[in-house]
Design a binder for these strands. Structure first.
Length: 276
DNA sequence: AATGAAACCTGACAGC
DNA sequence: TGCTGTCAGGTTTCAT
């Protein structure tokens, strides 16, 4: 499931492969779920633009697009991978996979394809001219938020720290894997009420979260389910998971069996001895 | 306003 | 073999 490190890996991969290319034509599927902007408006807006840069904001992949003309204009194409979304750069002759919802035909002759079996992914346009600013995402960036701001996010939150970490309007980019892994590394029980964590424990969580995210980015993300990068290659961080999907297996620190519970409808994994 | 549960989806897998 | 039921979880929607 794509979270911050997986989305960053995909965005960087796509950026390196197709930055500078012109979108010559666009094909979009007839399903309605993937499109938060109408397919007609999206295809018209994308066609003829040049891809200036592709980068990540939270779990969103942002395409900065430039339209030449008099006057020239700019806009952003926002891609959210949902659970099973993929962005693939392919040669034109490569067979189009099932569940393909968008094909951007590029000036090099290659294609950028958005493929998403479950249709939880979303595509939309963002126009800086209309909204006065570039796409920002719903919350704060986990990798750059200062520790004091981080602590403020959880003040007076009477929900569990796990649910708060998953709340995208607070921090964006953290999903189920990295919530569980960062809480284990910080020694915090996922069920603990966010508001009751001490400043010291929140500082430790801030540090654990940033280091686990950076390490996962370095390893190309976690390939569980069917996540792959823009080349179709898997990541390696799943080999570093200490609690996620290790229910019943011994804790790597104390040998106690890892326990599983459900928080906010999400499978939640923790060590009952190491996390208090 | 904040919180939690349900709904949206398909593929993988277990059990029979 | 093939069927049925369950589970996975990011986001949105709805109810409390």
């Amino acid at each position: 499931m794509p979270e911050l490190p997986e989305v960053e890996t995909v965005a960087n991969g796509v950026n390196g492969r197709i930055r500078g290319e012109v979108i010559e034509s666009v094909w979009l599927s007839r399903y309605r779920e993937p499109f938060k902007t109408s397919p007609k408006a999206m295809a018209e807006a994308l066609t003829g633009t040049r891809i200036e840069r592709v980068h990540r904001v939270g779990k969103h992949i942002v395409f900065d697009l430039y339209r030449p003309g008099n006057p020239p204009s700019s806009l952003q194409w926002i891609v959210h991978l949902g659970m099973t979304g993929r962005l693939l750069v392919s040669a034109a002759g490569v067979p189009v996979p099932q569940h393909t919802h968008a094909i951007l035909h590029l000036s090099s002759g290659r294609e950028l394809r958005f493929v998403d079996a479950r249709r939880f992914g979303r595509l939309r346009l963002h126009r800086p001219a209309e909204s006065q600013e570039e796409f920002q995402g719903p919350g704060r960036e986990p990798l750059t938020i200062p520790v004091t701001d981080f602590a403020v996010l959880f003040r007076r939150r009477r929900t569990s720290i796990k649910a708060a970490l998953l709340n995208q309007s607070l921090l964006h980019g953290v999903g189920n894997i990295y919530a569980d892994e960062s809480l284990f590394r910080a020694g915090i029980r996922p069920t603990r009420m966010a508001a009751r964590l001490s400043r010291e424990r929140l500082a430790r969580l801030h540090s654990s979260l940033q280091s686990v995210l950076r390490e996962a980015i370095r390893l190309g993300g976690s390939s569980v389910s069917d996540y792959v990068d823009a080349d179709g290659a898997a990541g390696f961080f799943q080999l570093e998971h200490r609690v996620y999907m290790r229910t019943g297996e011994p804790c790597l620190v104390c040998q106690t069996p890892i326990r599983r519970t459900v928080i906010g409808g999400r499978g939640t994994h923790y060590c009952p001895l190491c996390q208090s």
